[in-house]
Design a protein around this nucleic acid. Structure first.
Length: 217
DNA sequence: TGCCAGGCCGGGT
DNA sequence: ACCCGGCATGGC
């Protein structure tokens, strides 16, 4: 699938650099990755702002805080009770594995790290990969609902395909380049938001239309 | 007014 | 190995 490269060029020409991940540091990336699970980024920003004003944007601060208080701060991001517990699990992992310093994991093997992240309750494939790519700059492709929808709608992926298959598509066709994966995934989100919404089979003006006949998913 | 948003878990087939 | 209900806020 060398056309993935063409797909990337097309998206980049249409939208330009997306500046991901919008966060101040690796830990904030990880927190945002949990908070944005099935949630609008605008709501996540409010939650992150609340955490910052409370001085709670460090693993230690979140570790010390009562879970109910944490839930109150992240309320705007939705699912605040489950997410508070997930953040607790995340910081327990970070404190025990790297003394709370995410950066110190940067030299570790990406796939090994991925397996360890996936054992944390509340961290699934997309959240783990977001941390690996956007916080640790590992060349791991992040797949999300937009990525799947765009790929399927343009016939580059079978309708039944899941996370694993989509990720393999990129890992097999592209050089492992964290900067490329970073921009590429952000562009999927961008084009998905603008032209590939659910219940809207035809996407007028979509820069990918000439790739092939859009399917209806 | 519903529908949607940068998922994941636990229980059931 | 899938499939499903639950989890919740805010914007359009």
């Amino acid at each position: 699938m060398p056309e993935l490269r063409e797909l990337y060029e097309r998206l980049f020409r249409a939208f330009g650099p997306q500046g991901w991940w919008p966060a101040r540091g690796p830990f904030e990336v990880a927190v945002g990755a949990v908070l944005t699970q099935n949630t609008n980024w605008a709501n996540v920003k409010r939650a992150v702002r609340n955490l910052r004003r409370a001085g709670a944007l460090s693993p230690q601060a979140i570790h010390r805080m009562a879970e109910a208080e944490l839930a109150r701060l992240i309320r705007p991001s939705g699912y605040y009770n489950v997410k508070a517990r997930r953040l607790k699990h995340l910081v327990e992992f970070l404190i025990s594995e790297c003394g709370g310093r995410l950066r110190s994991l940067r030299r570790q093997d990406a796939q090994e790290l991925r397996r360890r992240l996936l054992r944390v309750k509340g961290i699934g494939p997309e959240t783990a990969d977001s941390i690996l790519l956007y916080a640790l700059e590992k060349p791991v492709f992040v797949v999300d609902a937009y990525t799947l929808r765009v790929l399927k709608r343009h016939g580059l992926l079978s309708p039944q395909a899941g996370y694993q298959e989509a990720q393999e598509l990129f890992h097999k066709a592209l050089e492992p380049d964290a900067r490329l994966f970073n921009e590429f995934h952000a562009l999927f989100v961008r084009v998905g938001k603008e032209f590939c919404r659910p219940r809207r089979p035809l996407c007028g003006g979509c820069p990918l239309l000439s790739l092939g006949p859009p399917r209806s998913t």
